[in-house]
């Protein structure tokens, strides 16, 4: 660590990346919690929002409206994949559901390949994505600060939704005991659709910053985020919202830390090390760092 300024930079980028990772993991976990589906096609929701940015961005609309429309696209696709592909296999084994989501993921990627382009395209992005500011001698990227703020706001908003609204309560209740949730009169399909909608919303928010960071969108753009979401949620705890958030932030600090301090040739093995950790976690502590407080009832 050279100086305070380096440390603050590290802190800001770790927190901002960690926040994004937390949102990625949450999008996966919120669906897994109630339907036991690990949605491989979650990355393609990020892709959809990315192409939304590209396509709507060509219009004269202000960028913020473009961003909102892109997020809406991700939500619509999330609801659509639930209705068309996942609802019919809801009672099948987790393995079947996982294979289905793998197929949905391939399908959407190749649709983008066929109808848009295999080549990366650069969507219109506002200048804040490249600018930096200097505050008391410390240089930070504006986008990092915004990402940090947005992720924290999103996490708090989600927490309020899950604690205060009856739909949010139903989501948590359904993760505890799905059958009983139906028996208190909650419409099961609605709850699951809500989970998918939130997943799409999170994917959309993530897409803004992820694509803002890399500056381009291509059919496989969602793959890296979905891998990150896998790692973060397995490490943090697949059935725990808190775990997903924790896992996301841990991974954020870890990636930025490794990038900063690890020699380049070791860094090449970063993904391999991360996924080796995933395997070890699954074996040693399959419930993740944050154990669900209570063993789940059999459904």
């Amino acid at each position: 660590m050279e100086s305070i300024s380096d440390f603050v930079q590290y802190l800001v980028s770790s927190l901002s990346v960690g926040g994004l990772y937390a949102l990625m993991a949450l999008g996966l976990v919120i669906v897994y919690g109630i339907s036991q589906l690990i949605n491989f096609a979650y990355g393609e929701l990020i892709m959809v929002a990315g192409y939304g940015l590209l396509i709507f961005g060509r219009s004269w609309l202000p960028w913020l409206i473009v961003a909102v429309m892109s997020i809406l696209c991700a939500i619509i696709f999330a609801l659509g994949m639930d209705q068309i592909a996942f609802k019919p296999v809801r009672n099948a084994s987790p393995t079947t559901m996982l294979i289905t989501s793998f197929a949905v993921s391939t399908l959407l990627q190749n649709i983008a390949l066929l109808f848009i382009s295999p080549r990366p395209r650069a969507p219109r992005l506002p200048s804040i994505f490249v600018k930096s500011v200097e505050v008391v001698g410390i240089r930070v990227k504006i986008v990092d600060v915004i990402a940090l703020a947005v992720s924290i706001v999103a996490l708090i908003a989600l927490q309020i939704f899950l604690r205060k609204s009856i739909v949010g309560l139903s989501l948590r209740a359904a993760a505890d005991d799905f059958t009983m949730t139906r028996l208190v009169g909650v419409n099961a399909n609605k709850v699951i659709a809500t989970a998918f909608a939130i997943s799409g919303l999170l994917a959309g928010i993530v897409a803004l910053f992820w694509i803002g960071r890399i500056g381009q969108v291509l059919p496989t753009v969602g793959f890296q985020p979905v891998l990150i979401a896998f790692i973060a949620s397995v490490v943090g705890g697949l059935s725990s919202i808190k775990g997903a958030v924790l896992g996301g932030y841990i991974l954020g600090f870890l990636t930025i830390g490794l990038q900063t301090w690890l020699p380049q040739d070791v860094n090449a093995y970063r993904d391999a090390i991360m996924f080796a950790i995933v395997i070890v976690m699954l074996l040693v502590r399959p419930e993740g760092l944050i154990r669900p407080a209570f063993s789940r009832e059999t459904r």
Binding site: I166, R172, A173, T179, E297
Partner: peptide
């Protein structure tokens, strides 16, 4: 009993009035 274990007592009651 099948209460929602990770929800608080109050939240369980509110779930009972979901309809």
């Amino acid at each position: 009993r099948r209460i929602f274990q990770s929800l608080t007592v109050g939240e369980n009651l509110r779930m009972g009035a979901a309809t």
